[in-house]
Amino acid sequence: MSAVDVAFPYRVDARGRTATTPHADHVRDMAELVLFTSPGERVNRPDFGCGLLDLVFAGNSPELAATLEMTARAALQRWLGDLLTVQSLTVSADEATLHVRVAYALNATGENHTLTVSGGSGR
């Protein structure tokens, strides 16, 4: 029997059962969770996450982008290193917007995927 990946956010499918999702989508969902969870937000895992949302109102700068690049790469490696291999992670500051692009390969299949998130930042 193969492993089943539960869909995120949790929902019930048309049959009234827990919805499932393909493995690649499940890994993408988990990567988004790591990026958007603030350290300290999870009671039983206070060091989980990288705090991208904490930076929404931070002053946008190249230094902020470099710091986020380092912390996001470390968090993805720590929490999802058994599921994916980060091939590249770039953070760019454009006006009042941060763009985060993660290129990764699934360890189970070797498939390449890209996750891109953008968000506003104050000045």
Rank of each mutant, 00 (worst) to 15 (best):
H26M: 08
P22M: 04
R101F: 04
V12Q: 05
Q87I: 07
A103R: 15
S121R: 12
F36P: 05
A66S: 13
V6Y: 10
L68C: 01
A74T: 08
Y104R: 01
F8M: 13
V6L: 13
V43C: 10
V100C: 00
R17M: 11
G16E: 02
E69S: 10
T97D: 10
G49E: 01
R78T: 13
M70G: 06
F48Y: 10
D54R: 04
N107I: 14
D54F: 01
H99D: 06
E41G: 00
E69M: 06
R42G: 03
F36E: 13
D5P: 03
T116Q: 14
G119N: 08
V4W: 08
G119Y: 11
L55P: 03
T90N: 11
E95V: 12
T71A: 07
G120Y: 05
P46S: 02
A66F: 08
M70K: 07
V4I: 14
L55W: 09
G119W: 05
V6A: 09
E95Y: 08
A108I: 07
L83K: 05
F8I: 09
V56R: 12
V43A: 12
N60C: 13
Y104W: 05
S38C: 14
V43K: 07
D25H: 07
G110W: 00
F8G: 04
N44A: 10
A74V: 06
H23I: 10
L98K: 00
Y104M: 04
L76Y: 05
R123I: 10
A96S: 13
T90E: 12
V43G: 07
D29P: 03
A72S: 03
G40Q: 09
A19M: 02
P62N: 03
A7V: 06
A3K: 13
V86F: 03
L98R: 01
V43P: 04
V56F: 13
G81L: 01
S88Q: 08
T114S: 14
G119K: 07
D82M: 10
T18H: 07
S2A: 14
A65D: 04
D13T: 00
D54Y: 01
E95K: 09
S2E: 14
G122R: 11
A103V: 15
Q87W: 02
T109D: 03
H23S: 10
G119F: 11
N112F: 10
R45L: 12
F36L: 15
P9W: 06
N112G: 12
E95N: 13
R11Y: 05
V34E: 00
P22R: 05
V12C: 04
A7L: 11
E69H: 05
M70F: 07
T116E: 14
L83V: 04
A3Y: 10
G16L: 01
V91P: 00
G51Q: 00
L84F: 02
F48L: 01
D54M: 04
T21R: 03
S88L: 03
R17P: 04
A3D: 15
L76F: 09
G16T: 03
G120Q: 11
E69P: 01
A103H: 08
R11L: 09
N60V: 13
T85S: 15
V91D: 00
L98I: 10
A75V: 03
L83H: 09
R15C: 09
A93S: 15
F36R: 15
S88V: 04
L33H: 13
Q87F: 01
L55E: 13
V102E: 01
T18Q: 11
T116R: 12
D94L: 11
